[in-house]
Design a binder for these strands. Structure first.
Lengths: 174, 174
DNA sequence: AAGGACGCCCGGATAGAATCCGGATAATGA
DNA sequence: TCATTATCCGGATTCTATCCGGGCGTCCTT
């Protein structure tokens, strides 16, 4: 399912547009990439069934719903036992403040990305919901300044020397 | 623009569905929340113009395009000067490996979220593209195990005592 | 308390898009 | 060179998004 798929420049162009705004109509998308609607539609359908596009999602602006503050909380657990890891992740994913949880290597075990109302709310979250948990040994908080700078999935340039994801090069050279 | 908006339970229900799958048709969405299509459409339109929904985006599965490894790189800069911060962020956002860049408080200055082919590729990225930059004092890499657990933006339960985002409670009680 | 104004809900009509299908065409391998 | 296969592409049909007008409940004003 996640076998690396060969993508040609038009596919990447489609991905670039859809990652930025997937509410565009197929007709407008087709016009922008210079394809008939049916071909464009077929491309998108293929990208979805291949698992390259694994979902179309609405992104909610946390600040617009009163969550003006975001933070990363680096969490270190007590000597790891599988059941403790599972109870920790289950509890964290239930919290409405949680945006994402990353299990990472290094001195910290987890990076927890949260969106809260303000610093008071963050303090409450850490004290009541995290530090009180027995499986947590240590928490370090990193406030996120401004809005995170998010980019989209882009191809390596074709001059790239490392392991390549390949190109299909379907009839693009006249 | 980012003034906190009042949302009722139906709005949150719509947000929950659209954050999970925004490719759903308005008709199907309306059926799931128990509203006529026109009312549902109006709700969604309002959520978009209010900035609560700030975009509909396709999410690309990095593994499906040959980027099987993700990592956070915690970056510490040399004594901060604004121009150095700007040159650093500009350079990082140009890298095709960059997924997101967070400017954070704490001992580290930035968390850089990247998707690369494999550990060799990650090593190349750090050595060639990051450590070589004069404004970077230190990099600490945290490999991300498995797939990150991502949740969606959810409301606080109404029993929540902290600062509330409020409810509209539009005619939900017969 | 009564009146008025505003916002929201809702059904229907129309324009436009998504989707399917068959033939044409180019790439691939023997 | 020829057969095969995958993709491209145009058109027709079905479904959807979207707009519009009326009705109703609620809140504010006086």
């Amino acid at each position: 399912m996640s076998e690396s798929v060969q993508l040609d420049p038009v596919d990447w162009q489609i991905l670039s547009i859809l990652q930025d705004d997937a509410s565009i109509t197929n007709k407008a998308l087709a016009d922008r990439v210079g394809l008939p609607t049916s071909s464009c539609h077929e491309r998108v359908r293929r990208l979805r069934t291949a698992g390259v596009i694994d979902g179309i999602r609405a992104s909610v602006n946390p600040a617009a719903v009163g969550r003006g503050l975001q933070a990363f909380i680096a969490v270190r657990l007590r000597p790891h036992r599988r059941d403790m890891i599972e109870s920790f992740t289950a509890a964290v994913l239930e919290l409405p403040e949680t945006l994402a949880l990353y299990n990472v290597s290094g001195p910290e075990d987890f990076f927890l990305h949260v969106a809260v109302v303000d610093s008071t709310d963050l303090q409450r979250l850490i004290i009541d919901d995290l530090a009180s948990r027995p499986e947590i040994a240590h928490c370090q908080t990193h406030l996120i300044f401004d809005r995170p700078l998010v980019t989209s999935m882009r191809p390596y340039p074709d001059t790239h020397t490392g392991p390549t994801t390949g190109w299909r090069n379907r009839g693009s050279t006249p």
